[in-house]
């Protein structure tokens, strides 16, 4: 359990990093979304997100659908490999619907807003790890000690 909390925090931090790269691809270079997804998936050592972004780009390219729809499809298929809570997915879901639908200026605001959302989630994940993580660790140690006592 403690390990999953740490993975959750790492996944959120990695997503924030990827969004920074995505912002550059969208706002500075003006690369279409499906290519930008594929690029960030390949380039930025996306960790657990690599396959998700590459697949999202593929789905958009092949099915000519928007980012929101593509994201939903891919997460439904591959989301279980990402250690996020249901509440995290809910916070993240609106963002993808807005991607690609407006000019660079507007996309920049959307990405900025999402960055703030991610920072908030990351903060919560860190707090959870500090409190629940310690609890799970202590529980583990105590259970181990109890097992040893019983065996003796």
């Amino acid at each position: 359990m403690s390990l999953r909390l740490a993975e959750r925090q790492r996944a959120l931090a990695k997503l924030a990093e990827i969004l920074l790269n995505l912002r550059n691809q969208i706002c500075k270079l003006g690369i279409p979304l499906f290519m930008a997804f594929e690029n960030v998936g390949r380039e930025s050592n996306g960790g657990v997100w690599t396959d998700i972004f590459i697949e999202c780009g593929n789905v958009m390219r092949q099915q000519h659908i928007d980012a929101g729809e593509a994201w939903k499809k891919v997460i439904k298929k591959m989301g279980s490999s990402i250690p996020l809570d249901e509440s995290d997915w809910q916070v993240l879901s609106d963002f993808w619907e807005l991607l690609g639908k407006s000019d660079r200026e507007n996309q920049e605001s959307i990405l900025e807003m999402e960055k703030e959302n991610l920072e908030m989630l990351e903060k919560k994940a860190k707090e959870a790890m500090n409190t629940k993580g310690r609890l799970y660790r202590n529980l583990g140690v105590l259970s181990g000690a109890a097992a040893v006592i019983l065996l003796l």
Partner: peptide, 14 residues
């Protein structure tokens, strides 16, 4: 319009 822009309006804004 979105299909013409490859679902990326910002990429075609110029």
């Amino acid at each position: 319009f979105l299909l013409l822009c490859e679902q990326s309006v910002y990429a075609y804004q110029d």
